[in-house]
Amino acid sequence: MLLFARSERAALLTLALVVAFPIACGFRTYPLFIATQFAVFAMVALSLDVLMGRSGQISLGHAGFFALGAYAAAILSVRYDVDLLVGVIAGAALAALGSLIVGLPATRLSGHYLGIVTLGFGVAVAQIALKWTALTNGDEGVHTHAIHLAGTVLSSPLHVYAVVFVALGAVTAFVARLPRTRLGRAFGAVRDSEIAAAAMGISVARTKVLAFVISAAIAGGAGALYAALTGFVAPEDFGIGQSLLFFAMVVVGGTASTAGTLLGALVLEGVSQAAATVGGLSLTLIGAAIVGVALFRPAGLKSLWRGGEGSR
């Protein structure tokens, strides 16, 4: 079976572009950092598309799951000097656990209710991170130890870059393959008709929670990698703005499309970086982009290469 359908080849192209970018810049530190940060954010965007595009739910608080993973990995690194792999697994596990908090009520909620609940979740996580100083060091943040993976210290940005891109590749492969699995079909069934899904023997509640758990676990794992990348985790990185940025990446790219989401992440991260010097400019541009997409191109960037087929 093909790993990527024809319509998903754009995903590979997007990835290749970003991998090539630091190489073209001669592996200087800043381009490497930017590219790696994009890869981390792209993983979160992909995880959010599993929830939104594939299973038809919504999260306006994905930075919360991202934060849980980042803090879990950073704190484990500082206190116990654990391997990055352990950090990633712990981050994914903590985020998955956290997702049950919103995922369980989510089985009985939809649309705007779920939007409000997840928004509140994201804010609550950031607030707890700010106030639980004994654990998180408050707004001073947590500085990680030297990051090591399988006995090797990741001493240069190039190492982290390599690790993160391998992870992004794995997440992309998983997400792209999902629609062609039993689980992915169950997600789509629940998204499109809960009544028919139940009649086909699918437990709607369990499927919805599972989508939350998988999505959060990926976001949490990405959070752990983010901690490894920046070497520093603080509450300000995980506010509403960050959650909305992830949301915007999926919407602008086009839901239920791996390649669209990757491209959306690339474009919006590009906008954020380019407009970072003027306060409020990137938020204005991203907001305008979202409104524009909703009004004029509801299918998002994926409509650039994909017509009616499988689109939604």
Binding site: G279, A294, P298
Partner: peptide, 19 residues
Amino acid sequence: TQIVVTLGLLMLLTGLVGM
């Protein structure tokens, strides 16, 4: 789509006010 639009306006207005 309607949720998306109002969220977009949230970002747009917040950004403009900041600018």
